[in-house]
């Protein structure tokens, strides 16, 4: 679904390469998590999947980015939104500012793409039901809570039925309740088979929902594997990325272990095995 080969990018008026020879693939229906310290190039990578890099920001790009069989670099921005949906940090900045109600805000992208009225209604019905927004359809989007706003933001790009959804730190401005709402929405998308890429600092939440984790440090792809394999690596502590506390706790218990658990469920299982093996 996503194929990135040798992606290297430099912003205009800068000599620093923000992305350095990134190569990765994401399968259809997969949920990929991206972690890395600030300034690692995570947001730039997200923008490259959408075509904002290079079409909006310009700069120098090399390598290829293919999403759903379409070359991002060679496609028009207006067309890329049919293939990729991008949600970013501040929900309020994602609203058009030109709509009065939640349902009108959600339909804004469909209007831009010239979708007919019946299909618009059908899509808005589908996405509001999927993300639990049915009761908020007539509300002013600016009067919602942070979590509700972010769900509206996700709905407003998901309604375009993109093959890939990219979420760039979607919970960074939200409280725990809002964060839970957004991750519940992500889980609903996973059930729908939407290919999802999530940039997130809340690693423990990320590993619960992602089949693989990519680690970006200073524009380089340092690791791309299952959460357990990524956080079991000896160099994981040097990336500047938070390591799940379950992994740290298990490592403290069993320093010789080749792999560490990353979620609560995995940890309970591993602790049972550990206890059994040490009893014997």
């Amino acid at each position: 679904m996503i194929r990135v080969r040798g992606l290297t990018y430099t912003y205009p008026n800068s000599d620093k390469q923000v992305l350095k020879n990134i190569t990765l693939e994401v399968e259809r229906g997969e949920t990929l998590g991206i972690v890395g310290p600030n300034g690692a190039g995570k947001s730039t990578f997200c923008h490259a999947l959408m075509g904002l890099v290079p079409h909006f920001y310009h700069g120098t790009i090399s390598g290829e980015v293919i999403v759903n069989g379409v070359s991002v670099v060679q496609s028009h921005m207006g067309e890329m939104c049919r293939h990729v949906g991008l949600v970013f940090q501040e929900p309020i900045h994602q609203f058009s500012g030109a709509k009065l109600t939640v349902e009108e805000e959600i339909a804004f992208g469909l209007e831009n793409l010239g979708v007919d009225s019946a299909t618009m209604q059908e899509r808005v019905d589908w996405v509001t039901a999927l993300l639990g927004l049915a009761d908020l359809r007539r509300r002013n989007p600016y009067e919602l809570s942070g979590g509700q706003m972010q769900r509206v933001a996700i709905a407003s790009v998901l309604v375009l039925k993109p093959q890939v959804l990219v979420l760039d730190e979607p919970t960074s401005q939200l409280d725990p309740a809002g964060t839970a709402e957004v991750f519940a929405a992500i889980e609903a998308l996973r059930a729908e088979g939407v290919t999802t890429v999530i940039v997130e600092h809340k690693v423990e939440l990320l590993v619960e929902h992602c089949s693989r984790i990519a680690v970006l440090v200073d524009g380089e792809l340092k690791a791309l594997d299952t959460p357990s394999r990524v956080f079991s690596r000896a160099d994981a502590e040097h990336w500047g990325v938070e390591i799940p506390r379950y992994s740290r706790a298990y490592r403290a218990l069993d320093p010789a272990s080749e792999s560490v658990p990353t979620t609560l469920h995995e940890t309970v299982e591993r602790l049972r095995d550990y206890e059994l093996s040490h009893r014997g």
Partner: peptide, 18 residues
């Protein structure tokens, strides 16, 4: 501007109305 772009604001199609 990015928010508008990612929602097809510059798409070369005739707009419709919800």
């Amino acid at each position: 501007a990015i928010a508008l772009e990612v929602r097809g604001f510059s798409a070369r199609t005739k707009r419709t109305f919800y």
